[in-house]
Design a binder for these strands. Structure first.
Lengths: 145, 145
DNA sequence: AAAAAGACTATAGAAGTAGTAGACTTTATT
DNA sequence: AATAAAGTCTACTACTTCTATAGTCTTTTT
């Protein structure tokens, strides 16, 4: 299950994507608009900022805006920042590889092989869907690209 | 992340699959062989039994065995018993549908549409991979079917 | 100097996961 | 019939992770 943190992150990025061109958006406004607990959102935005996805400005008239094009921010990368690995088992993770506790011989593990397939299938979607795609899908029916 | 419960379940099914033809296997032996805490395994096997995947026999000489062909037990079904929904958001779940807390309008939700794609991609693997496939993959390289 | 914003760290509460305990039921053996 | 060998079922505890909140500090504008 996707954490709330991740959902909030995506929502925030979508909102900031729609806000592009306008002055930066303050945390408080964003929190209200998207119905996200303010202090929680604060942390999330910080993470996204430290990962290079957001630009922030302090002081009066400050706030947050995207630091990349909505079309260059992929869900896979967001998930990895907020939730960590995308794979369902650590031993099948590309970016967060770790040996499974229960595993004796990883090389011949049938479970692992299957979940590498799952990971690939998942990534095929998440690494190709950007914030721009999510925004596009919000309004119209279903198209992609 | 897959729960330990699910991993244990798959391991147990694989072990029982390999044991087919022989007398039923006792929980204690299975637990030792697969290095699973006995009482925890007990619960898991019960769930699988109540879902119709295992046959059990009480008393001396009793134990557990598969109630279906290994080729007819699919990982997707196992996951659903042990971990619940396969989709990453409840609103994208086929078998455990539930409205997301944070969601205003599900119909136009771009997040939902994307995660329905993810679910479909995941299921394409998990609903077609059986315990027999996992066993096959353990020994040899990588083939399927 | 004051106010408006974000940055950062710590902590508390809630929920979910992993594991343990124990009493009960069924079946086989003697 | 008695005993022992299994599985059945429910409750509970400990631990970890997730969600959320609080508070103090820093930067920037007016």
């Amino acid at each position: 299950m996707l954490s709330k943190k991740t959902k909030y992150a995506i929502k925030a990025l979508v909102a900031l994507g729609k806000n592009a061109g306008n002055p930066p958006m303050q945390i408080v406004r964003l929190a209200e608009q998207e119905m996200i607990p303010r202090k929680f959102l604060e942390q999330i935005l910080l993470d996204m900022r430290n990962a290079g996805y957001l630009y922030s400005k302090k002081g009066a008239g400050g706030g947050y805006s995207l630091n990349k094009e909505p079309g260059d921010i992929y869900l896979a990368d967001i998930l990895r920042i907020t939730d960590g690995p995308i794979a369902m088992v650590p031993c099948a993770s590309l970016k967060f590889y770790r040996k499974c506790d229960e595993c004796h011989d990883e090389v011949t593990c049938g479970i692992r092989k299957t979940f590498i397939d799952v990971r690939d299938a998942t990534l095929k979607v998440l690494a190709q869907t950007s914030i721009a795609d999510v925004i596009a899908r919000e309004t119209d029916g279903n198209f992609k690209e």
